[in-house]
């Protein structure tokens, strides 16, 4: 007797298995005869020796690389060659810093905008213009003014992930039910107590949704920023493997990026659940 959850799991596994099967078939090396002499063949890759282009790696190659990376994730063989664990740690720490700063600014500012029509109307044009700017456009500006590439990466995360939190906080604060506000009025509650005990918990689910969206954006941005700037991080790892045209390694990195992104989202989903109230 398999319950609904169990059935969903089985279906997921089945889809994955079919996908891997198609992948294996698509990347099977076509048998070709070696068309060059021995000496030449030693100097070129296996595919080139049979007159073909090198191919996309199959699932077994990628699986082997995955095991290789995960079995020694924290090696350090020099400034430009560190294990995938270290690279991910760098990226996550940059995200944490940039996102944390963004939250520190977005939530108080969102409160202000949500509670004051004057500030909302005054700040709205700036928000609308800055919001759609891509991180890849901010990066050169940041490098030029802030100079340090680490600081620039953190700044780019900050400026890209602040908007969902800001907008959602403002919206959540402005949408607090009038009757709760009336209760605080009849109880002569001070503005600070009102903000902390009533407005914040009331707006918390909306704020949390904004934070969850923001962390997704931040994780996206860091990979792009690191590819641009290099040094350390999972984005740099992808770029370094791209240099070596090692698609298998890139796929491993891509998988790790997806997994970490998923974990981050799960964390925030938990937090969101904690502050949600049934009305």
């Amino acid at each position: 007797m398999v319950n609904e959850r169990g059935r969903a799991v089985i279906l997921s596994v089945l889809i994955f298995a079919i996908f891997v099967m198609f992948w294996q078939i698509a990347t099977m090396p076509t048998q070709g005869a070696q068309i060059v002499d021995e000496e030449y063949a030693k100097l070129v890759g296996a595919a080139a020796a049979t007159g073909q282009k090198s191919t996309f790696p199959g699932p077994l190659d990628v699986g082997a690389k995955l095991v290789e990376h995960l079995s020694d994730p924290f090696y350090d063989r020099g400034a430009n060659d560190k294990g995938i664990g270290i690279q991910l740690a760098w990226s996550v720490s940059r995200v944490a810093l940039g996102f944390g700063l963004a939250a520190l600014v977005a939530i108080p500012l969102g409160f202000l905008i949500g509670m004051s029509r004057l500030f909302f109307q005054a700040l709205d044009p700036f928000i609308q213009v800055l919001k759609p700017i891509s991180p890849l456009a901010w990066m050169p500006l940041a490098l030029f003014t802030l100079k340090d590439s680490n600081v620039s990466a953190v700044f780019v995360i900050f400026i890209c992930s602040i908007w969902p939190m800001l907008i959602n906080t403002a919206f959540g604060v402005a949408s607090v039910r009038k009757e709760w506000i009336d209760v605080t009025r009849t109880l002569e509650v001070s503005p600070l107590r009102k903000a902390w005990f009533v407005i914040l918990p009331a707006a918390a689910p909306t704020i949390m949704t904004g934070m969850r969206i923001s962390i997704g954006i931040a994780w996206l941005v860091i990979v792009a920023a690191e590819m641009l700037v290099g040094g350390t991080g999972i984005g740099y790892f992808v770029w370094n493997e791209w240099n070596n045209l090692s698609i298998a390694n890139i796929l491993v990195a891509v998988l790790m990026i997806g997994l970490i992104g998923m974990l981050l989202d799960m964390c925030f989903a938990r937090l969101q659940k904690a502050v949600t109230y049934r009305d």
Partner: peptide, 20 residues
Amino acid sequence: SGPSLDRGVVFQAHALMPWM
């Protein structure tokens, strides 16, 4: 001239804080 703790109100739709 304004709301006060002198006058307690029971609202039509209870107006309880759902997170408390």
